[in-house]
Amino acid sequence: MTQVSMTVNGKAARGDVEGRTLLSTFLRDQLGLTGTHVGCDTSQCGACVVHVDGKAVKSCTIFALEAEGAEVATIEGQANADGSLNVIQQAFQDHHGLQCGFCTPGMVMSAAALLKENPKPSEAEVRDYLEGNLCRCTGYHNIVKAILAASGQDVGAIAAE
């Protein structure tokens, strides 16, 4: 066991882990941050996406020890300081961008990373950026719409509610 320390959602976090302990396991099992989900074992579904030092990574494909000293952001730390939903979260609710909710934390974290890099993405850029995030419920329609709306673009012309 090796001690690992990092900052998670702005708070210091530490724990004893093995070399093989994944960041997703550390977050879920040791810190109790179960909002980060694990939906596959081949690094493709993206339900586990968190930010490490501001960059989107798949927390199931990085060891906890590799995040030593890093700033980690998870879905639990995304809401506004007063507890209200942030702009992206609110857009997902407003536009019904989630159904079962399992892929949602990864979707929101990927969307946040996208809008940081590209504040006004096109529809094609949003779809391309979500290549590593699978959703089985929404058909992506309302996820793409929500992200475009969160970027401040008018989505009124897009078909359906």
Partner: peptide
């Protein structure tokens, strides 16, 4: 109506 269950799913507070 916007979905009430969304709030917990969007904040990582779901209970799977």
């Amino acid at each position: 109506t916007k979905r009430r269950e969304d709030v917990r799913f969007l904040t990582g507070a779901g209970n799977y």
